[in-house]
């Protein structure tokens, strides 16, 4: 296979499994984001791919070749570290040329390549600048240029933008995405920021407790979370305890709700997940079914949208309405929420 393949990759620290049988195929040229809360094992997987950590078991294959036991210095996957890890005793040009010097590339070619890379990350002419004289964003770009200098088969980034402020972070995300599409380089980025993952990735890999919880295109992960963990971690979700009635119906308390499809057998407990923006609020029952009655327990007018909570059957259902659709109700009012069947996702408890 052309690309990177992880087979049952496992890393144990004592009894703790930091990575638990992680298997994944990453086609050549794809941008993959490993997304998960801290301590979910995403960085461990990245470091195993880089060769900085030895897997307890499992294999890593690059273009079909087993590289599990190759040292990091042999793999030469370019990596951008969370701390950036720029060499403070070298200037910008020397940092970028580091890998080239190790390979014995001659000075003239090195100079050319450094100029090329600085052009690529939009820092032309900064060759002789000291690292200490760079701004946060410039350091980021130098770290990216340095990792790309060796034309790595795989480009790895470990939470590279976490230290930047929101505006600069967004700018860097767009730039990195554009750069990656231009170079068509297989890229793996680790982040805990779902916005970052959603805006950049071809494929998002959601990790939790050392396992891959779900992987796929960003929208499908958002729209069709595979389990409770993903539904809870990605975006805001209402997670309602329900009982399965039959193949198309569940009950929430006493209210039967039609859903796209259920999993499990009748009578089993399950979780119904629905995104707040899919929840519809009305003053009176619409008569179309799939409705739950309750009282408005919270209203937050955010200007661009209105966020509300309706207490039904002992649980708050969170919804979002556009100002145009907002019913103008106030706290304590009686209201109905409709949970459209096509937006309801039934997950194992």
């Amino acid at each position: 296979m052309f690309g990177l393949e992880l087979r049952d990759l496992t890393k144990a620290y004592g009894d703790h499994l930091a990575a638990d049988h992680v298997s994944l195929s990453i086609p050549h040229g794809e941008f993959v984001c490993f997304l998960g809360p801290s301590g979910c094992g995403k960085t461990t997987v990245l470091r195993m791919i880089a060769g900085l950590e030895t897997p307890t078991s499992g294999a890593i294959l690059l273009n079909g070749k087993d590289i599990t036991h190759q040292a990091a210095s042999g793999r030469q996957f370019g990596m951008v570290f969370q701390s950036l890890a720029l060499f403070p005793h070298l200037n910008v040009g020397e940092n970028i040329a580091f890998a080239l010097r190790l390979r014995g590339v001659d000075a003239g070619r090195r100079k050319e390549r450094v100029a090329e890379l600085l052009e690529l990350v939009r820092l032309p002419g900064l060759q002789t600048r000291a690292i200490s004289q760079l701004s946060g964003g410039q350091r980021q770009r130098v770290a990216i240029a340095r990792a790309l200098a060796q034309e790595p088969p795989v480009f790895l980034l470990d939470e590279p933008f976490s230290a930047l402020d929101a505006k600069l972070r967004e700018e860097m995300q767009n730039e990195l995405r554009a750069l990656q599409q231009r170079l068509k380089i297989t890229t793996i980025l680790v982040t805990h920021d779902q916005r970052e993952a959603m805006t950049m990735a071809d494929t998002i890999v959601v990790m939790g407790e050392g396992k891959i919880q779900q992987h796929g295109p960003p929208v499908s992960i958002y729209k069709r979370p595979a389990n409770r963990f993903v539904a809870d971690f990605i975006g805001a979700s209402n997670l309602l305890p329900v009982q399965i009635l039959d193949g198309q119906t569940v009950t929430y308390g006493a209210t039967p709700l039609r859903v796209g499809a259920t999993c499990g057998v009748g009578g089993a407990a399950a979780t119904l997940a629905i995104r707040p923006e899919d929840v519809v609020i009305t003053r009176t029952a619409g008569g179309g079914g799939n409705e739950v009655a309750g009282t408005l327990s919270q209203v937050r007018d955010m200007g661009a949208y209105v966020e509300f909570r309706v207490a039904c059957e002992g649980l708050d259902i969170l919804g979002v309405a556009s100002p145009r659709d907002w019913i103008g109700a106030s706290l304590g009012d009686h209201a109905h929420v409709r949970l459209p069947a096509e937006s309801c996702q039934v997950l194992a408890r």
């Binding site: 900085l52 990091a72 210095s73 030469q76 570290f81 969370q82 190790l102 340095r146 200098a149 790895l156």
Partner: peptide
């Protein structure tokens, strides 16, 4: 910072 040394390793040092 151990990452500084690791960075050198990923560049083939």
């Amino acid at each position: 910072d151990p990452e500084v040394e690791q960075a050198a390793t990923t560049m083939g040092a």
